[in-house]
Design a protein around this nucleic acid. Structure first.
Lengths: 110, 110
DNA sequence: CGATCATATAACCCACGGGTTATGGGTTAA
DNA sequence: TTAACCCATAACCCGTGGGTTATATGATCG
C-alpha cells in the first residue's frame, strides 16, 4: 500500500464535510468574503464557520487576509491540483472524457 | 448554499479515509482481489477491511462478486465521475491541464 | 473614551467512525 | 461428515470531529 502525500490527505479530509465544500464553492463563486458574510445562511454559528475555514486553510484551499477588524477569505483553486492529479492517475475515466475533447480544443482555438 | 447530490457526499466521505483510498487504488491496479488478499499487508484486521469495502461499495466505487466461498472485489473507476465533474466545475485549473492535451490526443491517434 | 462589531480561541458535549474480538453462515477440502 | 477456510455481521471501545456557548482581543464607530 502506498503512502499518500500529507497534502492529499488534508484535502480529502477537508472536503469530506459538506459544509466545508459549500464554503469552498461559495468562495470560488463569490470571491473574497468575510467570516460574517459566510456565516449568513450557513445555518451554523460563527465559531463553527471559523473552525471550518481553519481546516480549509490548513489544507491550502483558502487564504485569509486581515483587513482592519474583518478577515476576507478567498478560495485557492490551484490547491485542487493534488486531487486532479490523483483522479487522473486512478481513473481509466479519461479515455471516455477524451471523446468530447476535440470539440473543446476547437472552441479554444477560436 | 447548494445541496450536493448524495452520491458526491458518499464518494467524498469514502475517500476521506486513507486506508479506503489505498484499497481503491490497489483494486484499480491489480484488478479483482479477494478480501483475504486485500487484508494481506493492510495492517488491519479482515473485518476492518470488510467494513471499508462496504463503505466503498455503498458509494458505488467498488463491486463485490461472490465466487464460492470467496468474494472478489473490483474497482468501478466510472464512479469517479461525480468527483471529476465537481472538480471541473470548481477549478480554473483545467485551462492549465489542457496545455499537454494535444500530445495526448496524438498519442491516442497512433 | 465607551460601546459595538468582527474574529479567533477555549472549554465542553455528544455522535459517529474506525478499530478490535467474537461469531455465524456458507463453501471447499480431507 | 468433519474440519478448515472465507467473509460478513454483531457487539463493543475509544478517539476524534463538528457543534455549541463563553470569552478574549483588536478595530471601528459615536
Amino acid at each position: 500500500m502506498t503512502i499518500s502525500p500529507p497534502n492529499r490527505d488534508l484535502i480529502f479530509r477537508a472536503f469530506a464535510d459538506p459544509t466545508r465544500r459549500a464554503l469552498f464553492e461559495r468562495l470560488c463563486r463569490d470571491g473574497a468574503l468575510t467570516v460574517h458574510a459566510l456565516t449568513e445562511g450557513a445555518a451554523i454559528s460563527q465559531p463553527a464557520v471559523s473552525k471550518h475555514l481553519a481546516v480549509l486553510k490548513s489544507a491550502g484551499l483558502v487564504h485569509g487576509r486581515v483587513q482592519g477588524r474583518e478577515t476576507r477569505y478567498h478560495a485557492e483553486p490551484m490547491a485542487l491540483a493534488p486531487l486532479t492529479d490523483w483522479l487522473a492517475h486512478y481513473s481509466s475515466f479519461w479515455d471516455h472524457k477524451l471523446d468530447g475533447l476535440g470539440d473543446l480544443l476547437k472552441r479554444m482555438d477560436q
